[in-house]
Amino acid sequence: MDEKILEVKNLTTRFNTPKGMVTAVDGVSFDVFKGKSLGIVGESGSGKSVTALSIMRLIPTPPGEIAAGEVKLNGEDILTLPDLDMRRIRGNKIGMIFQEPMTSLNPVFTVGNQIEEVIALHEKLSKVERRNKAIEMLDLVGIPSPEKRVREYPHQLSGGMRQRVMIAMALACEPEVLIADEPSTALDVTIQAQILELMKKLQDELGMGIIMITHDLGVVAEVCHDVAVMYCGKIIEQASVVDLFKNPRHPYTKGLISSIPSFDSTSLEEKKRLTTIEGIVPSLLDLPQGCYFQDRCFNVKEECRGGQGAPCLRSLDNHNHMVSCFNPI
């Protein structure tokens, strides 16, 4: 049995915007296991980043607020911890990397300084030991001549290199969970593949659990073991990667999967049949009664329109495959 390190239960995060209260994350639950990767996929605005920032308790308050839920790290609810204890967890037990490698590093401090800073905060090491560890981390993430790079500033590195530095920083204190918020989205394709490959390799070596946030199912297929699909702040389907790809049960998931070009379908005709999901994501300020996906769903029935409220996430025949739909396919 896999060892559960992080357990998110009914996480709900709201923002008080000038136009009204927005529930960006709505009752989200999932588990992260040691040495395993959980993918969170969804379109832009589905609440992936807010979920990640809520776990880190980095939601700007105001306007944001974690309204309900639990985030248990090794059984302890970190949402109720005092600030000081929470700071001991950030960067130490849970590391995070962000989508924007170009701007996520501080431009006026050297790469080494920024890696050493997190080590100094969480570990009792001397100055020299910290520098050595920073060099070691840069080496680990595949940066050539790390002794030299450690003294360089972020602007002297390429985007891919900077993302490697971010990874080195996030992993410097050997966290149990790594949250990666679209770590490869801003990079070009070959670099993307390298970064994902690196993260897989590091997971094998260090054994942390990863939450891989992405809008790209291809990334999920490549690196994840389990996957949760988010839509308008809710998880609408959750399964192992194999199950989800083989047998998607939610019409939205099916739509997402069939919009990935497959390598087998090389003929032009096949490619043309690549479906996209019609319609646009409803605004969080103006969500429909019932299922949030109803207006875009090819399988919509009367009960989806609100009579029975919103559908709940429930497991179907296979215990680990959960879907939130009145008419699963």
């Binding site: 980095l58 130490n92 962000f98 996520s104 501080n106 401090f109 920083m169």
Partner: peptide
């Protein structure tokens, strides 16, 4: 509101430290 400030917070640094080191120097 820059991204590097969020990164600094994600390391577990306290808000005064983030302000006095990261924000102030920029």
């Amino acid at each position: 509101y820059q991204d590097y400030v969020r990164t600094a917070r994600a390391k577990g640094l306290s808000e005064p430290y983030v302000l006095l080191k990261h924000v102030l120097k920029n």
